[in-house]
Amino acid sequence: MQVSMYRLYKDMLTSYLRDKSETALYHAQQFSKQMMEQDMSPEETVSLHLSVFQELAEDLPEEVTDSFDLLLEVMIGYGLAYREHQSLRDRQQELESELNVAAQMQRTLLPDKQVDTEEIDFGVISVPAGKMSGDYYHYDEDSVGNFAVAVADVIGKGVPAAMSMSMIKYAMDTLTDKQTEPAGVLESLNRVVERNIDEDMFITMMYGVYYPESHQFHFASAGHEPGFFYRSAADTFESLEAKGLVLGVSPKVRYEERGFRLDPGDFVVFLSDGVTESRVDGEFIERDTVVSMIKERLHLSAQEIVNELFEELEKAQEFQLRDDFTLMILRRKF
């Protein structure tokens, strides 16, 4: 390898000294790429130049040769820094690919099956601000056709939030079919979270169930950002609020459960605070802004509504999400 580099450099330098052509300069650029590919350090390059030069020009004045010793010394420091940079870059690539694997794993924790029931029009979008998300969502139809939905938000973002998020997923998996009443679900989850979470962390969550037989929708909230309830007949939006402490603060918490009837065309909206805390021109958007954005799209399907809202808010923030963003809509079709 070194011999061929020597050969190459010698040809290049000879050609350049002979006719000072642009072509030789172009070759020099190619050579420097090759140097980096072969992990040749800057001081090796200087030393290569000197050996080649000594062979080409006999009787070099002593000062010239000596001056290269000084340059070599200077380049050694530069070379060290360069190698350190290289190894940091490699390490960063390693971390990045680890993080990609983790993010991929995290995505498998979220449900992805198509909702295909005659009565329900369902849509959800969840986009992390970074690679990993602190938001969690859930939807599932039980054996008798009741449809459960949930959005949870772990404080903070990035890796620590993502790790707590998986705890919610596993805790939910341990719930049986009988434990589907929203207040009861949150009480169970709170016990798990309270035992397993850091002193100054917590999780907020909203959990709801739609019972197609009675057309009732029941929900409870653990300190979560309120959602919305749209009444089709009156064409009005109401805030979806229920009393309840965030998960993980106190071991025994009771949650208020509220319920109402969903008539055809009515829908509920669950969201994370990444939606309402979108900052446009440095100002937080108001909840009313979210409502009016939905109102303009009532004719679309639930999935189209959430997709379009995300696209519009992402664009308004110049494609830089500050927080994880989750938005979900459950509509009774007829």
Partner: peptide, 13 residues
């Protein structure tokens, strides 16, 4: 923000 809230929960505990 929510991280800030966490600090008050920590202080409460």
């Amino acid at each position: 923000d929510s991280t800030g809230l966490g600090i008050f929960i920590g202080a409460l505990k």
